[in-house]
Design a protein around this nucleic acid. Structure first.
Lengths: 164, 164
DNA sequence: GCATTCATACTCGGATATACTCTGTCCGAGTTCTGCAGG
DNA sequence: CCTGCAGAACTCGGACAGAGTATATCCGAGTATGAATGC
């Protein structure tokens, strides 16, 4: 029941990509977040397969969000990395043993599984209610708008940060 | 983001234990559910550590629920097996890279982590709202009361089932 | 001066090792029941 | 007939291997840029 660490990276990358108007290559994303370039590339590939980002090849290539940040939910990102399969997988053990459940009863999903699926639905609904733009807005409201303004400058100028 | 298969076994075992008035040994539980004896024992140990069941040693020993079934939530069982740590673990990558978050901003949890924690809370609330007794009641209402009556008979008589 | 060609440097994408956790198993410590001997 | 004791069988508990997945990495295919060349 542990989520992949790549989810955290992917969400933060989407946040940063929402601040960029030009394609951002993987090395730049990795440098900004201080994580492994090659492993981050793997997760970006998954985001690409899920259709959340578009890859541009070539010298000025990189990744760009395919949709506006307010149309990408956190759930989209999580499912792109973790896969859309529910956490609980019913193995139908009710059909095993000396007193298996009747075929008539098995027309409905196992009662245990239904409880788990309901919880999974609540979890997904919670994540689906928050977009990348919402997260950006929350952080800006709390820490000030200059937070992402600096990120935008860093993306545009390269590594010539003003904080040195 | 996959849940251990042992969770399913543990919940079904709690359901069966709620129907027993005498201690039920692991081999009996494993036979009823058609699963591995030794591996199931491992999960029962975890339930014992969590205080959900009490182990009785000796010839007539076995496991008994420590609380009534209507005071044991599905969340209790899931946490006993999976551990009470949240699925998402924030590694604070916002503090990495050339533009780390300010210490003042870090007094609050990371915005991404808060979204994940909120979803985790929704998931837990959903599971905490359902007790083992609720699951039993639902299945009885749908499939008839004889469903668990047979299980009770099987537990009392041994393996002399009437379905042969 | 301008169009074309070519080499280059940079990008993404998939195929490849390693570490860790989940799955599955085994044997030992402890307890209770049963049978038997003695009073 | 009752009591005490010894043996055995059964129970749980923790320590021990194997498989699958997450983690981390590398190299190859493809493309836009930029310079050099010929007209």
């Amino acid at each position: 029941m542990k989520m992949s660490a790549g989810v955290e990276w992917a969400v933060h990358c989407c946040i940063l990509l929402s601040q960029a108007d030009e394609p951002v290559p993987v090395p730049r994303l990795a440098e900004f977040h201080g994580v492994s370039r090659t492993y981050l590339a793997k997760h970006l590939q998954q985001l690409s397969r899920a259709g959340l980002v578009t890859a541009t090849e070539g010298r000025t290539g990189g990744y760009v969000l395919t949709r506006p940040a307010d149309e990408i939910t956190v759930l989209d990102v999580v499912l792109a990395i973790e896969g859309d399969e529910p956490a609980f997988r019913c193995t139908e053990i009710r059909q095993n043993g000396p007193l298996p459940a009747s075929p008539q009863a098995c027309r409905r999903a196992c009662g245990v599984a239904r409880v788990m699926y309901a919880a999974d639905h609540a979890w997904r609904s919670s994540l689906a209610g928050v977009t990348i733009a919402d997260v950006v807005g929350t952080v800006e409201r709390e820490n000030g708008a200059q937070t992402f303004a600096r990120a935008r400058d860093w993306l545009a100028t390269g590594s010539a940060g003003t904080t040195a």
